[in-house]
């Protein structure tokens, strides 16, 4: 699944990023590395989402959310 399909209020582990290399490296530098934790705080119809990565909140556009792949639901694991 991608972040875009995730549910608000839940925490997930990142499986991989699959986007333009430039943005991918930037996100990694911000701490969104493989197997790191990402918490989806809220999302809206347009597709932008608010996530928490290593204690910091970020707003991410739809294009980015659709390219962040997650391991299934962390709460159930």
């Amino acid at each position: 699944m991608t972040l875009f399909e995730a549910q608000p209020g839940k925490k997930y582990l990142v499986k991989k990023l699959d986007m333009e290399e430039k943005i991918e490296r930037r996100l990694e530098a911000l701490g969104l590395t493989e197997n790191s934790m990402i918490e989806l705080l809220s999302c809206k119809r347009g597709g932008a989402m608010i996530v928490k990565i290593r204690g910091t909140r970020f707003a991410l556009g739809k294009e980015i959310c659709q390219a962040i792949y997650l391991w299934g639901d962390n709460n159930e694991k």
Partner: peptide, 10 residues
Amino acid sequence: KKPALLIELP
């Protein structure tokens, strides 16, 4: 193409 939003929310 629309640039993707990426901004820190303090």
